[in-house]
Amino acid sequence: MKNNYSALNLIFIFLGSIVLLFIVAPLLGMLLNTSPAELIETTKDEEVQKSICLTLTTSFLSTIVFAIAAIPMAYLLARKDFPMKQLVLGIIDLPIVIPHSAAGIAILGFISRDSVIGRIAESVGLNFVGNPAGIAIAMAFVSIPFLLNAARDGFMGVPERLEKAALNLGASPTRVFFTISLPLAWRNIVSGLILMFARGMSEFGAVVIVAYHPMITPVLIYDRFGAFGLKYARPISVVFIIVCLVFFIILRMLAKEKKTQ
């Protein structure tokens, strides 16, 4: 135990505390600067309610829809070696490193009425720009790396021997995937889903370019700040952070419950 209190450790603990404070202090400051009355009033604001609902549903749906393709892809990346695999892995991480406003511009070009996809969508009466579907696409673009990487880690942690044993026991590759690989990687996949959902929910840059309206909460916060200033943007920020935290905690707990079962 003596080691724990060496000079180096004390310095590290001190530095760590500063980092922790750096994260907590602004959030706490904002919370303390907002009166309960303001918070209650904000939660009653219909525009706020609508935007929070919109944010949660678009992020949720975008996570679920893209997971259907992303999880099998993560499995491939974990199990197979193929030419240019490193390049593919690099591409997957791309959305994390590029500026999200630039990503928004790219997506807008991709789904606008002038693009092939936009035209196809329009022919069935759908316009992505300024539409929740467009918002979901922008959210997915910036958040899908989190799911892909987590799911890939999960599949890599499943011993190949177990899959081989299952094949030997007469199971088809499909059955092996659904009864062995997927359940054993599930914990990582769920944590990837949570991360993707949370990241999508908090996205501003890419979404604001694809769809200013209907307003998701991060855009609404920016809108109130631009129109009325800090004082009016603060309560809605606090409400949204609380909603995010509540969801984050609930999902974490659900994932943990699965783990202990």
Binding site: P159, R161, L162, K164, A165, A166, N168, L169, G170, A171, S172, R175, T179, I180, P183, L184
Partner: peptide, 27 residues
């Protein structure tokens, strides 16, 4: 052809019963 691995490769997320039943369910 049945293969028993050196480290047994018993499926960790299934009960003993479901491990034994695995091959039968596949059939």
């Amino acid at each position: 052809i049945g293969l028993v691995f050196q480290d047994y490769a018993v499926f960790p997320h299934l009960t003993v019963k479901n491990n034994i039943a695995y091959a039968l369910k596949a059939k």
